[in-house]
Each structure stands twice: as structure tokens, then as C-alpha cells.
């Protein structure tokens, strides 16, 4: 009897707690899964978000770097987590390319996308030793000499690799994509003139461009990148092509509306934080928050393109 009573009271207590949890979310630390090692682009974003989001939510964010499989392990862990809102992760284009490459068991619809926070376009930057100042010069040179462009990307199957393939298709020229272990290694090779160009994100090439070793040829965003204001977009150059890398917050599908609302509020506060704004600027990213239906539409469009291109690569 006593046993049953205890069980009952524990059960009631648990019940009250769980209702409370929804009302007063969050009541405990929130785990933020970063599917890559410390020190990567996504990791830097999460660590810059950490302070302002903690302030807004009134709890601690525990950053867990679950790396492996180019993000596959971390995203899979996040998908499999409880949907109580105490586990979130950072979606990027990699969430989609992993699906397209066929290496993971989840699909992009297994996530509830809470917010898009930062956007950075992809940039095609050429080694300055090539002497190209514009996209036109580069294309003409390639066509005249009938040779492929040696393009470095940040890893086989990475979103930069897929973007390089997509760009070549759009521009109608041949790219020979050389995958490197990291964006940094690809940039080093291009700065040294060992390859012709790289397709990466602005933050990775800004130093090289500042030093005059790299020239930004074209970017892929809707608008010009804040980090590379002089580089034209594909749209400006007359191509109907716009894809960007993005970083945001997502949870496993099935979190409550309350949890989502609390997070949206927190992100809205975070993007106003001057310290976060300074960090974003330094990372070469543009703060372009998106929530709700607009976000869903953005995810839908980007996912379709990235998955399609990645699937082609996997064949």
C-alpha cells in the first residue's frame, strides 16, 4: 500500500512538474548540440549566441560538440532527442546535403525550425595570380583556353562542394572540384596559387581578399554580402541563381508552440545584442532573422535545391 502511495505521489509530482515545465519553460539547462568540433563556423555562432540567449531565457545553454560524419552524428542525436525543448541544434545547409548524400537516417522534415539567425552567401574567389577582376574576364579566359577551373572546396560532399558543382552548371563552364580537409586548407592552396579558385563562405576568404592574394569574383546571395560589399551577386550578373549558407536554431519535430515562442523571443532579443552583432560582423555573416511561415518557406526551397544537387554528387 505504502508502495502504491509513493508511486502515486511521485507520478502526481511528475505530472505537476511537466505541466509546470511547459508553463515556465525553461526550468533547467538547455542542451545546444553543435554537430561539429569546437572552432568551426557553426560552433563560433553558437558560442556568440550563448550569452544573449542565456540572458533572454534565464537559463544556461550547455554547448555539446557532437562531431563525426560531417554533422551526421550530431544531427541524428538531435533528431532522436526528447521533444521537451531542452535539446536544440543548429541547422545549416549541411542538414540538407547529408540527406542528399544518403548517409543519414533522418530527413530535413524531422526538425522543427525555430529561427534563421545568420546568412552568409557562398563566394567564388580566385587566386589573384590569375589576374581576373570580374566574372566575365574569368569566363572568357576559361573559354578561350578551353580548360577547367580548379576549384577548392572545404570537404567532399560539403555544401561548398555542392555549391561549386551547381555554380559550374549555372555558368556553363567546367569546374574541377578539389576537396580539401577544411576551408582553411583550400584558402591556403588558392592563396599560394596551387589551385585557381575556391568556393567558400565570405568569412573564410576575407583575410585573403584583404591581403590581395584572392579576388572575389561573384557571390550567391540575394543581396551583396556585408563582408564583401564590392563583390557582385549572381543575380546582378544576370543569372537566376540565389542560394546562401544559413545558421539558425532547430529542435526535433514535436516541440510545443510555447517552447517555440520562447525561443523566437530569445533569438529576437539576441540579434539586437550589440556584442552579438559585433561577433556576427567579424564572422562575415549577415544577421537576417526569419521565423514562422517565412522560415518554413525558406527551408523548403533551400532544402529542395541542396538535396537534389547532393544526390547527383552521390551517384
Amino acid at each position: 500500500m505504502k508502495k502504491i502511495m509513493t508511486t502515486l505521489s511521485v507520478a502526481t509530482a511528475a505530472l505537476t512538474l511537466s505541466t509546470l515545465a511547459v508553463a515556465d519553460y525553461p526550468t533547467k539547462n538547455i542542451e545546444f548540440i553543435v554537430p561539429w568540433n569546437a572552432g568551426g563556423g557553426a560552433d563560433n555562432v553558437v558560442r556568440a549566441l550563448q550569452n544573449p540567449v542565456e540572458k533572454a531565457l534565464g537559463t544556461n545553454l550547455v554547448v555539446r560538440n557532437i562531431s563525426g560524419g560531417g554533422g551526421a552524428v550530431g544531427f541524428s542525436t538531435a533528431v532522436g532527442a526528447k521533444t521537451d525543448g531542452y535539446v536544440v541544434t543548429i541547422p545549416t545547409n549541411a542538414t540538407f546535403t547529408l540527406e542528399g548524400l544518403g548517409n543519414v537516417g533522418f530527413t530535413y522534415t524531422d526538425f522543427e525550425y525555430i529561427a534563421r539567425v545568420l546568412v552568409e552567401p557562398y563566394v567564388l574567389a580566385a587566386s589573384s595570380q590569375k589576374g581576373w577582376e570580374s566574372l566575365e574576364e574569368m569566363l572568357n579566359d576559361l573559354q578561350e583556353n578551353d580548360r577547367p577551373l580548379m576549384v577548392g572546396a572545404s570537404g567532399v560532399g560539403s555544401s561548398t562542394h555542392i555549391m561549386a558543382v551547381a555554380l559550374a552548371e549555372e555558368l556553363g563552364v567546367r569546374f574541377e572540384v578539389v576537396p580539401y580537409d577544411s576551408g582553411a586548407n583550400a584558402v591556403t592552396a588558392a592563396m599560394g596559387g596551387h589551385i585557381d579558385a575556391v568556393v567558400l563562405n565570405p568569412s573564410e576568404v576575407v583575410s585573403g581578399i584583404d591581403s590581395g592574394r584572392l579576388t572575389a569574383i561573384v557571390t550567391t546571395g540575394d543581396e551583396r554580402s556585408g563582408a564583401l560589399p564590392d563583390a557582385p551577386t549572381m543575380l546582378e550578373q544576370g543569372y537566376d541563381f540565389s542560394v546562401s549558407q544559413w545558421r539558425g536554431v532547430a529542435a526535433p519535430k514535436g516541440i510545443s508552440q510555447e517552447v517555440e515562442d520562447r525561443w523566437v523571443e530569445a533569438i529576437q532579443a539576441a540579434v539586437e545584442d550589440p556584442e552579438f552583432q559585433r561577433a556576427a560582423e567579424m564572422m562575415g555573416s549577415d544577421i537576417m532573422p526569419l521565423y514562422g511561415d517565412e522560415l518554413d518557406e525558406f527551408v523548403e526551397n533551400t532544402a529542395r535545391l541542396m538535396i537534389e544537387e547532393a544526390a547527383k554528387l552521390a551517384q
Binding site: 572552432g39 582553411a184 576575407v206 585573403g208 561577433a279 567579424m282
Partner: peptide, 17 residues
Amino acid sequence: AVLMGGLMIQGIRPGPT
């Protein structure tokens, strides 16, 4: 790489400039 992340968050962009 982590150190460089720290620098950038501090508002220092590594590179020749």
C-alpha cells in the same frame, strides 16, 4: 581554429590588416 574563433568574437580579424 578555436583560438581564431575567440579572436573574431573579440572583434579582431586575423590577417595582414
